[in-house]
Each structure stands twice: as C-alpha cells, then as structure tokens.
C-alpha cells in the first residue's frame, strides 16, 4: 500500500531521492540532506501521503563502515491512510541538518535527543540542548568512538569508596548475620545470680 508513497516521492522529487527499498516490508527512502525539510513538509501536506503522525527520529553511526558517517532516520505514519515510511538522510562530519520541529511538533524532543547522543546539529531548532545527559557532559555517548565505560562524574567520589582495595579488613564490609537477634543471654538479677 505504501509503495505508492515511495512512487509518489520519486515522481515528485526525482534525483533528490537517492535510493528506496522495502526490506522486511518497511518502505524506506534515502534522500539528500539539503532537501530534508522540504520532503518532510511534502509528506505531511500532500493528500496522497498525509503523514501526520510523527513516530520516531534517531541516528545511526556507521564509523569506519560507511561514508558519510551518520544516517538520520525518521519514521512517520498516517493516521487516516495507515501507511508508514522511513526517511533517511546521510550526513558527514560535522553533521548538520534542517530541523523538522516546525513540521511535526513531536520532532522537538527527538531531535534534542539525537543532538545529545550523536552530536547531530539541527539547524533552526528552537531549543537545542542536551536532554538525557547533563549540560556538563562532554562528547556524544552513542557515537561508536565514545568508550562505553567512560564516566564523567558530577560529584567527587568518597575517597574511601574509590581508593579502596581488596582484601578488606575484618571490620569492613557489611556484617552479615545477626548479632543480637539470635543471641540468648542469661538474665541476671541485681545480685549477680542468673535465673537458672
């Protein structure tokens, strides 16, 4: 059904659509980044497409695998016509592309997330700042060249917790086992004689 959307897209935009495929039944079009916004607006406003339901926007980093490096991926669907489309644009570094937040209001946060995680800059975005990470964070964590375990703490660690080396002393660590609940103490009266 949504093959028609792909057809229509190639008819209208011609060379701006670089390639299309329908792997696993997901209709996909790769377009040139310079006409990204224009094509998105067309998808929403054209009567035959009517892609009014924003679904998802993300990016994929193909470091050392593909040139250009990034691929911005957009998923949209139509509430009335029930078809879906995946729109992709390939970006080199520095990655910049037009914002879609004026077309679908939902793109706002998704673009912020994409900026946060991949460092893709969305030109014209009203409020482009980090959303999941804190403002002090440096780098883009989901890029393939960001080491997964590299933390950037905001507070100083307690020296005794960080610098602590095994083996531990006996008095350290959590005392396992109860020391008062299980203990039976003979009751002693004031004169020092036990009950028994």
């Amino acid at each position: 059904m949504s093959k028609r959307v792909l057809q229509r897209l190639t008819e209208v935009f011609g060379a701006a659509v670089i390639e299309t495929h329908s792997q696993h039944g997901d209709d996909t079009a790769v377009v040139v980044p310079s006409r990204w916004k224009e094509i998105a607006a067309f998808l929403r406003d054209d009567e035959k497409c009517a892609m009014n339901h924003f679904i998802d926007l993300t990016a994929v980093d193909y470091l050392n695998r593909r040139e250009p490096r990034f691929e911005v991926v957009l998923h949209v669907r139509s509430i009335e016509k029930l078809h879906r489309l995946r729109l992709k644009a390939r970006l080199g570094e520095p990655a910049t592309i037009d914002t879609l937040s004026g077309i679908w209001a939902g793109a706002d946060w998704f673009e912020r997330e994409c900026f946060d995680m991949f460092g893709v800059e969305f030109v014209g975005h009203p409020d482009l700042r980090r959303i999941l990470m804190y403002p002090e964070f440096v780098g883009s964590p989901l890029r393939k060249d960001y080491a997964a375990q590299h933390t950037q703490p905001l507070v100083e660690y307690r020296p005794e917790a960080v610098g602590k080396l095994p083996p531990f002393d006996e008095h350290e660590g959590m005392p396992f086992g109860r020391q008062t609940h299980d203990r039976v103490e003979p009751r002693v009266n004031a004169l020092g004689f036990s009950d028994e």
Binding site: K164, L165, P166, F168, E172, M174, P175, Q179, T180, H181
Partner: peptide
Amino acid sequence: LLLLQDKIQRGDRTPGIVKPRTDP
C-alpha cells in the same frame, strides 16, 4: 531491614563497603 535494625541496636555506625568492580 532487620539487619539494619540489628546494626542500630548495636550502635554500629561503620559504613559498609562493596568490592570494586574492577580488580586493580
């Protein structure tokens, strides 16, 4: 929770420590 109550009863205020994730 019972362990904590036990610790409070003993008046023990030593913080616990877990082994670091990476063996130095």
